[in-house]
């Protein structure tokens, strides 16, 4: 649990540093912070086997760091550096690392769902006991591909776990204006798979629920739907003007911040000083990652040969 806490702190400090950098005008494009949601991505990835796959959303920093990606290379990718996980070609929404099975942030809302389902099909056909975990939001739960994927996964008993990271808002629209039912886990029944709603700010609860679902899938018993209730405290992205999330609602969720909850639980067991030291080291690791990554070189352009429209030529016309 201390390691999960450490990764949540890594993620939080990454988000805070990105917020500062954005205010200083040093980021490029929008950044989608996951402040307050860290327990979902970190708890879920902690439950994965080393060769499982995970797909996530455009708000995937907790999954990136939870899955154990090197903070320096994550920051380098966010800042478009050559040393980033994708050499600066992807950016913060599209980080992918095949080595750890972190098969990508995905900025088409809902796309992480069939993506994980396809990987699960691949594993089933290859007869491998590996599972794919789809992390997606309450907005993505309303897409057609969510329905199609859940139906196919349940039909074929694919080794996939659907983790619905319910942060209450699809961009600016509250879930009550998007969904016909308040609890999305009830939809699992329609596909004949287990579904439950858990506290997405309790990292241990997330870990437990996802671990059980992964084991079930690994046994060949098919998919599960886990709805982890959490809250997005920092707006849709750095370009969000705000104004649609009630202050009282934000304050209520801040009081239940997953890092506060985990810190309190750990302090009881390990002592506050020990936890404090661990957090300080985690923040220092992120600061060092920023220092190193920002000193890294920008990538040099090279054309993409497989995209070339003319056979036998490096790229484009002329």
């Amino acid at each position: 649990m201390l390691e999960m806490h450490r990764r949540m702190v890594l993620t939080r400090h990454l988000e805070e540093r990105l917020g500062e950098m954005h205010k200083a005008g040093r980021t490029r494009g929008p950044i989608h912070r996951c402040d307050g949601q860290e327990a979902v991505g970190v708890g879920a990835t902690a439950a994965m086997a080393h060769d499982d796959f995970v797909t996530t959303t455009h708000r995937g920093h907790a999954v990136y760091l939870g899955r154990g990606l090197d903070p320096r290379r994550v920051v380098a990718e966010i800042f478009g550096r050559e040393t980033g996980y994708c050499g600066g070609r992807g950016g913060h929404m599209l980080v992918g690392d095949a080595q750890t099975g972190m098969m990508g942030g995905n900025a088409i809302v809902g796309a992480s769902i069939p993506a994980a389902t396809g990987m699960a099909l691949s594993m089933q056909l290859r007869g491998e006991a590996r599972v794919a975990l789809a992390v997606f939001g309450d907005g993505a739960a309303q897409t057609g591909i969510c329905h199609e994927s859940m139906n196919i996964a349940a039909l074929w008993r694919l080794p996939v776990v659907f983790l619905l990271e319910h942060n209450a808002y699809g961009l600016t629209v509250h879930h009550s204006a998007q969904s016909s039912v308040p609890d999305l886990s009830v939809r699992a029944a329609g596909y004949g798979m287990p579904g439950e709603t858990i506290d997405g700010n309790d990292v241990v609860a997330v870990y437990g629920a996802v671990a059980a679902a992964l084991q079930r899938a690994r046994r060949g018993e098919g998919p599960s739907l886990i709805e982890a209730r959490t809250y997005r405290v920092e707006g849709f992205s750095t370009s969000d003007m705000g104004g649609y999330q009630p202050d009282a609602e934000i304050a209520e969720w801040r009081a239940r911040d997953p890092i506060l909850l985990a810190r309190a639980a750990l302090a009881d067991r390990l002592g506050a000083a020990h936890v404090e030291r661990c957090e300080t080291e985690a923040r220092a690791e992120i600061d060092a990652a920023f220092d190193a990554a920002l000193a890294d070189p920008m990538p040099a352009f090279a054309p993409h040969t497989p995209s070339a429209p003319h056979a036998g030529r490096a790229y484009g016309v002329r």
Partner: peptide
């Protein structure tokens, strides 16, 4: 089983083909 009838779900089937291909099939 390597030849499968599918539901009428072209959008998802195509997306699944993409990631299945990325993961060894």
């Amino acid at each position: 089983d390597r030849v499968r009838d599918t539901p009428i779900s072209e959008q998802t089937l195509t997306a699944m083909a993409v990631t299945a291909a990325m993961t060894g099939t």
